[in-house]
Amino acid sequence: MDIQRLKPHLPWITLVVLVAIVGVNDPGFLRPSNLLGIAGDIVPLFIMALGLTFAIYIGGIDLSAQSMANMVTVVASVYLASMGAWVAVLCVMAGFLLGMLSGYVTTRLFVPSFISTLAVGGVAFSIAQWLSGQRALNMDAAQRNETFGWMIGRTWGVPHELLIAAVLVVLCLFIERRTTLGRALKAVGAGELAAAASGLNVARYKILAFAISGALAAIAGLLFAVKLSGGAPTIANGFLLPAIVAVLVGGTPLTGGVGGVANTVVGTLIVAVIRASMLYFEIDATRQQIVFGVVLIVAIALTIDRAKLRTVK
Protein backbone atom coordinates (compact mmCIF):
# COMPACT_ATOMS: atom_id res chain seq x y z
CA MET A 1 0.00 0.00 0.00
CA ASP A 2 1.47 3.28 -1.10
CA ILE A 3 1.67 5.83 1.69
CA GLN A 4 0.83 8.67 -0.68
CA ARG A 5 -2.41 6.95 -1.68
CA LEU A 6 -3.24 6.28 1.93
CA LYS A 7 -2.67 9.88 2.99
CA PRO A 8 -6.01 11.41 1.98
CA HIS A 9 -7.79 8.71 3.97
CA LEU A 10 -5.75 9.15 7.14
CA PRO A 11 -8.07 11.69 8.83
CA TRP A 12 -11.20 9.54 8.88
CA ILE A 13 -9.20 6.38 9.66
CA THR A 14 -7.75 8.25 12.65
CA LEU A 15 -11.26 9.26 13.70
CA VAL A 16 -12.63 5.72 13.48
CA VAL A 17 -9.66 4.28 15.37
CA LEU A 18 -9.95 6.91 18.11
CA VAL A 19 -13.68 6.33 18.50
CA ALA A 20 -13.07 2.57 18.61
CA ILE A 21 -10.36 2.89 21.27
CA VAL A 22 -12.50 5.08 23.50
CA GLY A 23 -15.61 3.01 22.79
CA VAL A 24 -13.96 -0.28 23.78
CA ASN A 25 -12.74 1.20 27.05
CA ASP A 26 -15.97 2.98 27.85
CA PRO A 27 -19.06 1.57 26.11
CA GLY A 28 -21.12 4.48 27.47
CA PHE A 29 -19.19 6.76 25.12
CA LEU A 30 -20.90 5.21 22.08
CA ARG A 31 -24.44 5.92 23.29
CA PRO A 32 -26.07 8.11 20.62
CA SER A 33 -27.13 10.73 23.15
CA ASN A 34 -23.55 11.01 24.40
CA LEU A 35 -22.12 11.28 20.88
CA LEU A 36 -24.70 13.91 19.96
CA GLY A 37 -23.90 15.87 23.11
CA ILE A 38 -20.18 15.84 22.36
CA ALA A 39 -20.82 16.94 18.78
CA GLY A 40 -23.15 19.71 19.92
CA ASP A 41 -20.66 21.11 22.39
CA ILE A 42 -17.94 21.47 19.79
CA VAL A 43 -20.04 23.51 17.33
CA PRO A 44 -18.75 27.05 18.12
CA LEU A 45 -15.21 25.76 17.72
CA PHE A 46 -16.22 23.96 14.54
CA ILE A 47 -17.65 27.11 12.97
CA MET A 48 -14.42 28.96 13.68
CA ALA A 49 -12.44 26.07 12.17
CA LEU A 50 -14.71 26.17 9.13
CA GLY A 51 -13.73 29.81 8.57
CA LEU A 52 -10.06 29.10 9.15
CA THR A 53 -10.29 26.40 6.50
CA PHE A 54 -10.77 29.05 3.83
CA ALA A 55 -7.76 31.08 5.01
CA ILE A 56 -5.55 27.98 5.19
CA TYR A 57 -6.93 26.55 1.92
CA ILE A 58 -5.37 29.48 0.03
CA GLY A 59 -2.07 29.00 1.87
CA GLY A 60 -2.59 31.78 4.40
CA ILE A 61 -3.54 31.76 8.07
CA ASP A 62 -6.03 33.72 10.15
CA LEU A 63 -4.74 34.35 13.66
CA SER A 64 -7.47 36.93 14.31
CA ALA A 65 -10.30 34.38 14.50
CA GLN A 66 -10.20 34.18 18.29
CA SER A 67 -10.15 37.96 18.83
CA MET A 68 -12.93 38.29 16.27
CA ALA A 69 -15.12 35.83 18.21
CA ASN A 70 -14.27 37.64 21.44
CA MET A 71 -15.29 40.95 19.93
CA VAL A 72 -18.56 39.52 18.63
CA THR A 73 -19.55 38.12 22.05
CA VAL A 74 -19.24 41.69 23.33
CA VAL A 75 -21.04 43.28 20.36
CA ALA A 76 -23.89 40.78 20.69
CA SER A 77 -24.24 41.36 24.43
CA VAL A 78 -24.16 45.15 24.10
CA TYR A 79 -26.55 45.59 21.17
CA LEU A 80 -29.00 42.74 21.76
CA ALA A 81 -31.22 45.01 23.84
CA SER A 82 -31.46 47.77 21.24
CA MET A 83 -31.28 45.84 17.96
CA GLY A 84 -32.96 42.53 18.69
CA ALA A 85 -32.37 39.88 16.05
CA TRP A 86 -30.64 42.39 13.76
CA VAL A 87 -27.63 42.20 16.03
CA ALA A 88 -26.78 38.94 14.24
CA VAL A 89 -26.44 40.85 10.97
CA LEU A 90 -24.27 43.45 12.67
CA CYS A 91 -21.99 40.74 14.09
CA VAL A 92 -21.55 38.90 10.80
CA MET A 93 -20.96 42.16 8.92
CA ALA A 94 -18.34 43.21 11.47
CA GLY A 95 -16.54 39.89 11.06
CA PHE A 96 -16.79 40.07 7.29
CA LEU A 97 -15.43 43.62 7.10
CA LEU A 98 -12.54 43.01 9.50
CA GLY A 99 -11.72 39.86 7.53
CA MET A 100 -11.74 41.92 4.35
CA LEU A 101 -9.36 44.34 6.03
CA SER A 102 -6.95 41.46 6.81
CA GLY A 103 -7.23 40.30 3.22
CA TYR A 104 -6.69 43.78 1.84
CA VAL A 105 -3.62 44.35 4.01
CA THR A 106 -2.24 40.94 3.01
CA THR A 107 -2.78 41.17 -0.73
CA ARG A 108 -2.49 44.88 -1.56
CA LEU A 109 0.04 45.96 1.06
CA PHE A 110 2.13 42.75 0.93
CA VAL A 111 2.00 42.06 4.66
CA PRO A 112 2.22 38.31 5.43
CA SER A 113 -1.15 37.04 6.63
CA PHE A 114 0.05 35.87 10.02
CA ILE A 115 1.14 39.44 10.81
CA SER A 116 -1.82 41.21 9.20
CA THR A 117 -4.34 38.98 10.98
CA LEU A 118 -2.44 39.35 14.26
CA ALA A 119 -2.66 43.13 13.82
CA VAL A 120 -6.36 43.08 12.88
CA GLY A 121 -6.87 40.81 15.90
CA GLY A 122 -5.34 43.59 18.00
CA VAL A 123 -7.83 46.05 16.52
CA ALA A 124 -10.72 43.68 17.28
CA PHE A 125 -9.46 43.23 20.85
CA SER A 126 -9.39 47.01 21.32
CA ILE A 127 -12.94 47.34 20.01
CA ALA A 128 -14.06 44.58 22.39
CA GLN A 129 -12.44 46.27 25.37
CA TRP A 130 -13.85 49.64 24.40
CA LEU A 131 -17.41 48.38 23.94
CA SER A 132 -17.39 46.27 27.06
CA GLY A 133 -15.68 48.80 29.31
CA GLN A 134 -13.27 45.93 30.10
CA ARG A 135 -15.96 44.02 31.99
CA ALA A 136 -17.81 40.77 31.46
CA LEU A 137 -21.32 41.47 30.16
CA ASN A 138 -24.55 39.55 30.56
CA MET A 139 -27.45 39.31 28.15
CA ASP A 140 -30.97 39.83 29.39
CA ALA A 141 -32.10 36.21 29.81
CA ALA A 142 -35.68 36.74 28.63
CA GLN A 143 -34.62 38.66 25.55
CA ARG A 144 -31.93 36.15 24.70
CA ASN A 145 -34.42 33.30 24.87
CA GLU A 146 -36.91 35.19 22.76
CA THR A 147 -34.41 36.24 20.07
CA PHE A 148 -31.82 33.49 19.92
CA GLY A 149 -33.37 30.76 22.05
CA TRP A 150 -33.83 28.63 18.93
CA MET A 151 -30.03 28.33 18.60
CA ILE A 152 -29.69 26.20 21.73
CA GLY A 153 -31.74 23.39 23.16
CA ARG A 154 -32.72 20.05 21.63
CA THR A 155 -35.37 18.63 19.36
CA TRP A 156 -35.84 14.84 19.61
CA GLY A 157 -32.47 14.67 21.32
CA VAL A 158 -30.61 16.49 18.56
CA PRO A 159 -28.87 19.68 19.76
CA HIS A 160 -29.91 22.68 17.67
CA GLU A 161 -26.29 23.73 17.34
CA LEU A 162 -25.78 20.68 15.13
CA LEU A 163 -28.49 21.91 12.77
CA ILE A 164 -26.79 25.32 12.52
CA ALA A 165 -23.49 23.57 11.86
CA ALA A 166 -25.13 21.40 9.18
CA VAL A 167 -26.56 24.44 7.38
CA LEU A 168 -23.17 26.17 7.43
CA VAL A 169 -21.38 23.03 6.20
CA VAL A 170 -23.77 22.70 3.26
CA LEU A 171 -23.31 26.40 2.46
CA CYS A 172 -19.51 26.16 2.64
CA LEU A 173 -19.44 22.93 0.62
CA PHE A 174 -21.56 24.68 -2.00
CA ILE A 175 -19.15 27.61 -2.13
CA GLU A 176 -16.16 25.28 -2.32
CA ARG A 177 -17.46 22.83 -4.95
CA ARG A 178 -20.16 24.55 -6.98
CA THR A 179 -19.09 28.17 -7.40
CA THR A 180 -16.46 30.08 -9.35
CA LEU A 181 -15.18 31.38 -6.04
CA GLY A 182 -14.52 27.84 -4.82
CA ARG A 183 -12.62 26.93 -7.97
CA ALA A 184 -10.63 30.16 -7.82
CA LEU A 185 -9.66 29.49 -4.19
CA LYS A 186 -8.48 26.02 -5.14
CA ALA A 187 -6.40 27.48 -7.97
CA VAL A 188 -4.85 30.06 -5.63
CA GLY A 189 -4.08 27.42 -3.02
CA ALA A 190 -2.61 25.00 -5.53
CA GLY A 191 -0.31 27.58 -7.10
CA GLU A 192 -0.76 31.27 -6.64
CA LEU A 193 1.69 32.34 -9.34
CA ALA A 194 0.11 30.03 -11.90
CA ALA A 195 -3.35 31.30 -10.96
CA ALA A 196 -2.22 34.91 -11.38
CA ALA A 197 -0.54 34.08 -14.69
CA SER A 198 -3.79 32.54 -15.94
CA GLY A 199 -5.47 35.89 -15.53
CA LEU A 200 -7.24 35.22 -12.27
CA ASN A 201 -7.83 38.22 -10.03
CA VAL A 202 -5.98 36.53 -7.18
CA ALA A 203 -6.14 39.45 -4.78
CA ARG A 204 -9.94 39.69 -4.95
CA TYR A 205 -10.46 36.00 -4.18
CA LYS A 206 -7.93 36.06 -1.35
CA ILE A 207 -9.65 39.05 0.23
CA LEU A 208 -12.95 37.16 -0.03
CA ALA A 209 -11.41 34.08 1.62
CA PHE A 210 -10.28 36.15 4.61
CA ALA A 211 -13.68 37.86 4.74
CA ILE A 212 -15.46 34.48 4.86
CA SER A 213 -13.08 33.41 7.60
CA GLY A 214 -13.92 36.57 9.57
CA ALA A 215 -17.66 36.16 9.05
CA LEU A 216 -17.60 32.54 10.26
CA ALA A 217 -15.47 33.48 13.27
CA ALA A 218 -18.16 36.07 14.03
CA ILE A 219 -20.92 33.45 13.81
CA ALA A 220 -18.88 31.24 16.14
CA GLY A 221 -18.64 34.15 18.58
CA LEU A 222 -22.36 34.86 18.33
CA LEU A 223 -23.29 31.27 19.08
CA PHE A 224 -20.83 31.19 21.95
CA ALA A 225 -22.31 34.39 23.40
CA VAL A 226 -25.83 32.94 23.15
CA LYS A 227 -24.72 29.71 24.84
CA LEU A 228 -23.07 31.58 27.71
CA SER A 229 -25.68 34.34 27.70
CA GLY A 230 -22.99 37.00 27.77
CA GLY A 231 -19.67 38.21 26.45
CA ALA A 232 -16.21 39.46 27.45
CA PRO A 233 -13.07 40.54 25.57
CA THR A 234 -11.21 37.32 26.43
CA ILE A 235 -14.08 34.85 26.78
CA ALA A 236 -13.22 32.81 23.67
CA ASN A 237 -9.50 32.58 24.41
CA GLY A 238 -8.37 29.01 24.00
CA PHE A 239 -10.35 28.54 20.77
CA LEU A 240 -7.57 29.32 18.34
CA LEU A 241 -5.29 26.34 19.03
CA PRO A 242 -7.95 23.60 18.76
CA ALA A 243 -9.48 25.35 15.73
CA ILE A 244 -6.17 25.34 13.85
CA VAL A 245 -5.60 21.75 14.99
CA ALA A 246 -9.04 20.77 13.64
CA VAL A 247 -8.27 22.16 10.19
CA LEU A 248 -4.81 20.61 9.96
CA VAL A 249 -5.68 17.23 11.49
CA GLY A 250 -8.53 17.05 9.00
CA GLY A 251 -5.99 17.10 6.19
CA THR A 252 -5.92 20.67 4.88
CA PRO A 253 -2.18 21.35 4.91
CA LEU A 254 -0.65 24.68 5.90
CA THR A 255 0.48 25.04 2.31
CA GLY A 256 -3.10 25.00 1.05
CA GLY A 257 -4.61 23.69 -2.17
CA VAL A 258 -5.96 20.35 -0.96
CA GLY A 259 -8.40 19.33 1.74
CA GLY A 260 -11.26 21.67 2.43
CA VAL A 261 -14.56 21.91 4.23
CA ALA A 262 -15.30 18.18 4.46
CA ASN A 263 -11.86 17.58 5.94
CA THR A 264 -12.50 20.13 8.66
CA VAL A 265 -15.68 18.29 9.66
CA VAL A 266 -13.60 15.16 10.25
CA GLY A 267 -10.80 17.18 11.89
CA THR A 268 -13.16 18.83 14.35
CA LEU A 269 -14.66 15.46 15.28
CA ILE A 270 -11.14 14.16 15.94
CA VAL A 271 -10.53 17.14 18.26
CA ALA A 272 -13.87 16.45 19.99
CA VAL A 273 -13.03 12.78 20.51
CA ILE A 274 -9.52 13.59 21.79
CA ARG A 275 -11.08 16.00 24.29
CA ALA A 276 -13.70 13.51 25.39
CA SER A 277 -11.22 10.67 25.63
CA MET A 278 -9.03 12.74 27.93
CA LEU A 279 -11.96 12.83 30.31
CA TYR A 280 -12.47 9.07 30.13
CA PHE A 281 -8.81 8.24 30.56
CA GLU A 282 -8.70 10.77 33.39
CA ILE A 283 -6.01 12.83 31.79
CA ASP A 284 -5.94 16.10 33.66
CA ALA A 285 -7.65 18.97 31.85
CA THR A 286 -4.50 21.02 32.38
CA ARG A 287 -2.63 18.70 30.03
CA GLN A 288 -4.99 19.33 27.14
CA GLN A 289 -3.03 22.24 25.81
CA ILE A 290 0.21 20.25 25.72
CA VAL A 291 -1.53 17.38 23.95
CA PHE A 292 -3.06 19.68 21.34
CA GLY A 293 0.22 21.52 20.81
CA VAL A 294 2.01 18.24 20.11
CA VAL A 295 -0.85 16.96 17.92
CA LEU A 296 -0.62 20.21 15.97
CA ILE A 297 3.09 19.74 15.27
CA VAL A 298 2.60 16.12 14.22
CA ALA A 299 -0.36 17.02 12.00
CA ILE A 300 1.54 19.79 10.22
CA ALA A 301 4.60 17.61 9.76
CA LEU A 302 2.47 14.86 8.21
CA THR A 303 0.34 17.01 5.92
CA ILE A 304 2.55 19.85 4.72
CA ASP A 305 3.55 19.81 1.05
CA ARG A 306 7.28 20.41 1.14
CA ALA A 307 7.57 20.62 -2.64
CA LYS A 308 5.84 23.99 -2.40
CA LEU A 309 8.29 25.42 0.08
CA ARG A 310 11.59 26.13 -1.58
CA THR A 311 13.10 27.34 1.64
CA VAL A 312 11.33 26.84 4.93
CA LYS A 313 11.45 30.10 6.84
Binding site: V105, L109, V111, I115, S116, L118, A119, V120, G121, G122, V123, F125, S126, I127, Q129
Partner: peptide, 10 residues
Protein backbone atom coordinates in the same frame (compact mmCIF):
# COMPACT_ATOMS: atom_id res chain seq x y z
CA UNK B 1 -3.31 50.34 22.87
CA UNK B 2 -3.68 47.02 21.03
CA UNK B 3 -5.65 48.62 18.23
CA UNK B 4 -3.16 51.44 17.77
CA UNK B 5 -0.27 48.98 17.84
CA UNK B 6 -2.02 46.78 15.31
CA UNK B 7 -2.35 49.66 12.87
CA UNK B 8 1.24 50.80 13.56
CA UNK B 9 2.65 47.38 12.78
CA UNK B 10 0.84 47.25 9.42
Amino acid sequence: QDGVLGLLVI
